[in-house]
Design a protein around this nucleic acid. Structure first.
Lengths: 338, 338
DNA sequence: TGGCTTTATGGTAGCGCTTCCATCGGCGAT
DNA sequence: ATCGCCGATGGAAGCGCTACCATAAAGCCA
């Protein structure tokens, strides 16, 4: 028996029969009510209410070739950054009657490809992708499907279609330049495993290049790769203090690590920023609250989702999108920690 | 033009033509490959690959009366608790080939009802609902649709169908009893607006009843309702210290507020737990890291999602679910703050 | 009042796929 | 040699709905 309604389902014919009209009239009441005589319309509406009729969108989608669904692929849902982007996206989409089909790629291009194949089979009207790192097959499928695509969070060199992002490189460089301006010269780097995450790769590059171009050193002993999570930040700090006690500042690839570093400093009684300055990336809500407040860079997470939705909606409305690549920028947040 | 593929779409007939077989044979290669002769099968598979054919799941769903989709309604995605539950749910569902259609109700029963109506039109095979507070119309629709339903996070008195939850009342009571055992007698309460959130309502009740049954007071001046967020917790602490300086402990309806309280204590130099004990609810990752570490109660967020998926999958497999209401319990986490 | 448009409704085809039943060789059993 | 059966394939119907075109009734102008 498992599965949905099936046999018991009320169909449009049932409503039509009850109201004494043809099915096409019921369909019209649903979509172009103004073209139906008031008396007929209310009879149909009554029948709909009495039978508790819900139109079958699967059937409608098949004939109308419009599903009203948008496929979104994100690394994981339980990551506040992506959750907020999707939240912004969903609010705009829901308002336009578009529903989100969400899938998690677990930071794997292969999983992304497999999920995309499955999702495209569902005939979404647009696809939301995270970042700019995608497998060739993913790109091919997307091109072939001719569905509008938005890549969110990066600024790809070769965008698939549309983009709502920011430059991780520039944002990280801005934080690092701030540290340099403040006089810090021995700046360490704490980061989580990069994997296929192009944003983390960019931040890494920004760390190396920005310091190099300022004539500063970046020996390997000043870097530490740690599991993502506050505990990871704490561990990283302990290790860095051991292997590179000369550091006067630490840049973290994300606030989660930075908060871990800050809390470890609190535990060990290391004065921030006196003894060691700390800077993060993302501007999570806790950044402004923690003691000392964290210097970081705010990225427009919610806004990226909203803009992504806007781009899709405009495209679906048939409008040409003049600027398919939108750079939402970032904002340096200078606080007490650096 | 806007919208998905349409005209250019490769259909099953195209594959059939190319492979020199009937469409039904292509369908068989896709679903019951063993019934097709090896030679034919590889010819069809070649045609599929050459044309980049993706089956149209909308059409398949219509005839098979199985969409392979599960509708999930949560308050917001950008809430780590719900995100983790959904993450657990999604992992299990994805493994079984079920895709999640996610909608945000923004803590409104009316929005929930509207979204459910829209989602049910898409013929989901199951519905995931948050909490146990739903409008009568929501319940009616669900019953009429005969779709398996799981309510997650609460233990409803009158479940719609299946449940994967825990008791907010018991969990909050456990934290409060711990505070009482530790000798605290003047226990305040910081909470976020309850609205339609039955879990928050239960915690509130637990606060009043647990203290009362221990013979302790709960004057109104010992409670403070604050916006959700760390800043809200900080504000609440400041207010409570002003209006009720006699408090020796504070219980917070969620760790987010508790962390706000803790950080405000740090800022104001209030000794925790010496001067004031603090306890939270949820056991967010930061609870174990913050200084002092937060005493709280861990709820099985990810597990609830997994169990919810398990219940749905068993039901869809046609198995009778003997225990449709699963209580996942909770774990008191005693740490330094109380 | 006739010929015209306008408004309200219905009939029918078909979206892309799967399900059911029919067909057709070929093979072993009698 | 004949029958029956099975494995492999195809034809056709139809899932529930909407798009398109047809039709009938009602209004409008000269």
């Amino acid at each position: 028996m498992g599965g949905n309604a099936g046999q018991g389902q009320v169909r449009m014919v049932d409503v039509a029969r009850r109201a004494g009209v043809a099915t096409v009239t019921v369909s019209r009441v649903l979509h172009e009510a103004e073209k139906v005589a008031p008396a007929t319309r209310s009879r149909v509406e009554a029948a709909i209410a009495e039978l508790g009729y819900l139109p079958n969108l699967v059937a409608r989608s098949l004939v109308a070739a419009r599903t009203g669904m948008v496929a979104a692929l994100i690394p994981t849902i339980d990551n506040s950054l992506h959750a907020e982007m999707i939240q912004g996206m969903d609010e705009r989409c829901a308002a336009a009657g578009l529903h989100l089909l969400i899938g998690c790629t677990a930071f794997s291009l292969e999983v992304e490809e497999r999920m995309l194949r499955a999702f495209l089979s569902r005939q979404p009207e647009a696809v939301y992708l995270t970042g700019s790192n995608h497998s060739p097959a993913t790109r091919t499928m997307l091109k072939a499907s001719r569905v509008p695509v938005v890549e969110v969070a990066s600024l790809p060199e070769t965008p698939i279609d549309m983009v709502a992002g920011y430059s991780s490189y520039c944002a990280a460089a801005a934080v690092l330049r701030h540290l340099i301006e403040r006089g810090y010269r021995r700046i360490g780097y704490v980061y989580s495993p990069i994997g296929v995450n192009d944003r983390l790769a960019e931040r890494h590059r920004a760390y190396l290049e920005t310091l190099a171009s300022a004539g500063l050193e970046t020996p390997e002993a000043w870097r530490f790769e740690s599991e993502l999570g506050m505990a990871g930040g704490g561990l990283a700090l302990a290790r860095l203090r051991a292997q590179a006690p000369e550091l006067d500042a630490v840049f973290c690839s994300t606030d989660v690590l930075a908060v871990g570093v800050l809390l470890e400093c609190l535990r060990q009684g290391i004065a921030v920023p006196g003894e060691l300055a700390v800077a993060g990336f993302d501007d999570l809500p806790i950044a402004a609250e923690i003691v000392p407040a964290l210097t970081t860079v705010r990225i427009p997470r919610r806004r990226m989702g909203e803009v992504a939705a806007g781009l899709i909606l405009r495209r679906l409305a048939g409008e040409a999108v003049a600027e398919p690549v939108v750079d939402l920028g970032f904002e340096l947040q200078v606080r007490a920690s650096a």
